[in-house]
Amino acid sequence: MEPNSPTIKNSESLQFWKNMNGAQKMVMITMAVLTLIAVLAAAILNNPASSSSSSFAEEDSRNHHLNSVIKKACANTLYTSLCFTTLSSIPSPVSSDNNQTVLSFHYILEFAINQTKKHVLETQVSSISRFQNQSWSSQQQNAIKDCMEMLDQTQYELEQAIENLHQFPESVGYLPRSYGYLKVLLSAAMTNGYSCIDGLSDLEALDSEAQKEIKKHFQVSLNPISQMISNCLAMITDMEKVRRQETMKNPRMLLMKIPEDRLLDWMSVKERKMMQMKGKLSPDVIVACDGSGNYSKIGEAIALAPNFSKIRYAIGIKAGIYEENVIIPREKTNLMLMGDGMNSTIIAGSRNIVDGFSTFASATLSMLKTFISLNFQYC
Rank of each mutant, 00 (worst) to 15 (best):
L34Y: 14
S104I: 07
A49G: 10
S52R: 13
S53P: 11
K118E: 11
N231A: 06
I70W: 03
L374D: 03
S88M: 03
E170I: 02
E122F: 07
M256V: 15
S292N: 10
K215L: 06
N46Y: 06
L82Q: 12
E157I: 02
I258C: 10
L200I: 07
S221W: 00
T77L: 09
K215I: 08
C289K: 12
G341L: 11
Q140L: 02
V184Q: 10
S89R: 13
A361V: 03
L109F: 01
L374Q: 01
M148H: 07
S137M: 06
N343A: 08
T345L: 04
L158G: 00
S187G: 13
K18T: 05
A288S: 13
T85R: 11
S95T: 12
S230K: 07
Q276M: 15
L263C: 13
A43W: 10
S51C: 11
S362C: 02
R177C: 09
N325W: 02
S268L: 06
R252V: 13
N46S: 13
V69Y: 04
L374S: 02
I37C: 09
L158E: 00
S126D: 06
M342P: 04
N21H: 00
E331V: 06
S5P: 03
T77Q: 03
R262T: 15
T154Q: 01
V220F: 11
I70P: 00
P169Q: 04
E324T: 06
A301F: 04
T101N: 10
R252T: 15
V120P: 00
S5Y: 11
L200N: 02
V102I: 15
K270I: 14
S5D: 15
Q167T: 08
S373F: 06
G293I: 02
M253N: 08
M28Q: 12
F218H: 03
I321M: 12
V285I: 09
N223R: 14
T77V: 12
S51K: 15
E149I: 04
V69L: 09
A205V: 14
T85C: 09
I328G: 03
S127L: 04
